[in-house]
């Protein structure tokens, strides 16, 4: 059985904390961080990294193009 797992990399300084990616994430991976970036925004991060399946919905809705998505297919 092949299992898909993914990861996102957020450009923290570009993120404006609009939380559209948090809303778009179907696996509840992303959340806004409690701490802020240099411009004072609560940037998004992977709160539960195990959940991410690399569907790239977060990067599709991101207005500031600060999310890169990686996906790995693990064959057992």
């Amino acid at each position: 059985m092949a299992k898909v797992s993914g990861a996102v990399v957020v450009d923290i300084e570009k993120c404006k904390g609009c939380s559209l990616c948090v809303e778009a994430c179907p696996t509840l991976t992303l959340m806004l961080n409690r701490s802020v970036n240099n411009r004072g925004y609560h940037f998004c991060y992977m709160q539960i990294p195990e959940n991410c399946n690399g569907c790239a919905n977060c990067s599709a809705v991101c207005p500031d193009s600060c999310i890169s998505v990686y996906r790995l297919r693990i064959v057992h």
Binding site: S5, G6, A56, S59, S65, S68, V69, Y70, L72
Partner: peptide, 15 residues
Amino acid sequence: KINEIIAPENLVYAK
């Protein structure tokens, strides 16, 4: 595990 996933060959989307 995340570091293993984040490799150029696994890139799905980047700006």
